[in-house]
């Protein structure tokens, strides 16, 4: 597995797209800080970008890599190597290289602008952690989609649709539901619904650090327990881990049955 991981990692590190991705984040970081000149404020703006763009890039990259390296993968499959090892190696290779681009791309400008001397360092590390989680989750989800669809165009379509659903549509339906069933106690429901969307979950995780003052404005006891104590933080991270484990498990199950 580590050999495959190493090869796909080096392959990606040499590829143009990792550099584009890295340079995009680097430019973004510098421009944000140049325009704001305030690390605290830039962290907030960055949150919006991370929870929307990281999943999108993870999804597109995952699908693209799967279809592009299909021939090489089939060649590998002919060798006496376990299937799960090949795909896990590829999966980890992509996720790690994307995460590296993210961390370095954003880390360099922020460190250059005096992150270590600022109080925002914890918020910023959390942001990067969430970004890493989202990379791992969305690459796994896109691998699942690609594995289930032989047709390249279909696979791409479903992957983008999945991103669109989780990033925008889910929240729209969720909001409509909350407003519509206004009269009912909805605090438990709204927290549980958040758990079913990794993007919402990561947003909540960041808000717990950045906007805790606003989140505590609601009177419900369930909310207060969730946001006011460490429960929210622990539970969110735990479920994010589940969000990685479940797609990876399904990927491995699918692999065993798939006819290449």
């Amino acid at each position: 597995m580590f050999k495959i991981l190493k090869y796909s990692f080096y392959d990606l590190m040499r590829s143009r797209w990792s550099y584009v991705y890295f340079i995009f984040y680097l430019a973004l970081g510098f421009i944000l800080l140049f325009l704001n000149n305030d690390v605290n404020k830039a962290v907030i703006t960055l949150m919006n970008i991370i929870i929307v763009l990281t999943p999108l890039i993870g999804t597109v990259f995952g699908v693209m890599y799967y279809y592009n390296s299909k021939e090489f993968t089939e060649l590998l499959l002919a060798q006496p190597i376990k299937r799960s090892k090949i795909f896990m190696g590829q999966y980890l290779g992509i996720s790690i290289s994307l995460t590296l681009s993210l961390v370095l791309g954003l880390g360099i400008p922020f460190v250059a602008y005096g992150l270590f001397r600022s109080s925002a360092i914890f918020d910023f590390s959390l942001l990067l952690l969430v970004g890493a989680f989202l990379n791992f989750i969305f690459v796994a989800l896109s691998f699942n989609i690609a594995l289930s669809n032989e047709n390249k165009i279909k696979g791409f379509g479903y992957a983008i649709l999945m991103w669109l659903f989780l990033a925008v549509i889910y929240d729209g339906v969720f909001l409509t539901f909350l407003v519509f069933f206004n009269e009912y106690p909805l605090d438990k429901f709204s927290l549980i619904a958040t758990m079913f969307n990794p993007i919402d979950l990561s947003r909540i995780l960041i808000l717990l650090k950045l906007d805790i003052s606003a989140l505590l404005g609601y009177t419900g006891a369930v909310f207060r327990k969730f946001f006011g104590t460490n429960l929210g933080m622990t539970l969110s991270i735990f479920i994010l881990v589940l969000w990685i484990i479940f797609p990876v498990w399904r990927m491995n199950r699918k692999l065993k049955k798939k006819d290449f």
Binding site: L175, L178, V179, L186, R203
Partner: peptide
């Protein structure tokens, strides 16, 4: 305005959909 009417919607703070509306 929405949060005033349905306080639970606060969990959607800073989400992309909210920015759109």
């Amino acid at each position: 305005y929405i949060v005033n009417r349905t306080p639970e919607t606060i969990v959607l703070l800073r989400s992309l959909f909210v920015d759109i509306i």
